[in-house]
């Protein structure tokens, strides 16, 4: 520790402490107490965790949350990649396309929720009107849980596919033209070129896109909260809505803290799994 450079880490450490370490320690602490506003905290050990894991609504929300993330990844990643491939590589349309694509990303989360709520209102929304027009008259996001679910998914796809497109597009632009020329000389088909040139070169962009989209979708709160409030029933109650409902709505801070910790480790664990799988998948074989 003779090196004085270590002192330069202090500001970062201070910021990290305030933004991450101290809140996290508080949450870990709370999770072991029964904490209700107005009464003295009481140490109860692992009881909160046992309660959480025994709560059917928690398990339902978790299952719903996992399903939601899987669905939006399965839609947004291929769709984003496909659209990125379809975008012009050069010319005057590049700038316009990117600006248009960027618009949803510039809208705050809860505003997106409100926009979609208006958009899908059964009395004056465009979505029900369109469904009516094509003959599916039963659409109602505030009564029908299936409609509510797919509306939340559609909203997320609308909001975040542009991010995937931009990441993939940047990755595509970074692939030297020579690779495609060489593939032509080597007689590769369009599929072969995509499989052995484009896709491997996009690995890092795709990992980034998958991780960002997984983490964000797994933590999604403001948009469905504004759009459906978790309903009808619990049909769109995702994990964060459940957590805030318990901790803030139900004033059960200890329970909420236990949910948060489980939540936190799930995000880390699944992200690590996704990263590891994507780093190792799809090497070319010798024989």
């Amino acid at each position: 520790m003779k090196n004085r450079a270590w002192w330069f880490l202090l500001p970062a450490l201070a910021v990290m402490s305030l933004s991450a370490f101290i809140p996290l320690m508080t949450v870990i602490n709370y999770a072991q107490y029964s904490v209700f506003p107005g009464s003295a905290p009481q140490f109860i050990g692992m009881e909160n965790f046992a309660d959480v894991l025994g709560d059917g609504v928690f398990l339902d929300s978790l299952r719903r949350q996992v399903l939601f993330s899987i669905e939006i990844l399965l839609i947004e990643i291929p769709l984003g990649l496909g659209l990125a491939l379809a975008l012009p590589k050069k010319g005057k349309w590049v700038g316009w396309s990117l600006v248009l694509l960027g618009i949803p990303l510039l809208i705050p989360w809860n505003v997106v929720g409100i926009i979609w709520r208006v958009f899908t209102r059964s009395d004056l929304g465009a979505v029900p009107a369109i469904f009516n027009w094509i003959g599916y008259g039963a659409y109602n996001a505030s009564l029908n849980s299936g409609d509510a679910w797919w509306t939340v998914v559609a909203m997320d796809v609308w909001h975040w596919t542009p991010l995937v497109i931009l990441l993939c597009y940047a990755g595509l632009q970074a692939i030297p033209e020579e690779f495609y020329r060489a593939a032509k000389i080597d007689g590769a088909s369009a599929w072969s070129t995509f499989r052995y040139v484009t896709l491997p070169k996009l690995r890092h962009s795709l990992i980034l896109a998958v991780l960002l989209r997984f983490m964000d979708s797994f933590k999604i709160y403001a948009e469905p909260f504004q759009l459906t409030g978790g309903g009808p029933g619990n049909s769109t109650t995702l994990l964060s809505i459940y957590t805030s409902r318990k901790a803030i709505g139900g004033f059960n801070m200890g329970f909420g803290a236990a949910v948060s910790i489980i939540y936190f480790f799930l995000v880390i664990l699944i992200s690590w799994l996704l990263y590891t799988i994507m780093m190792n998948v799809g090497g070319g074989s010798s024989k």
Binding site: E178, A182, I185, V197, G284
Partner: peptide, 13 residues
């Protein structure tokens, strides 16, 4: 054709 920029497919050995 061998290009100025060395092309190897790093998805294969």
């Amino acid at each position: 054709q061998v290009f100025q920029f060395p092309v190897v497919y790093d998805s294969m050995d």
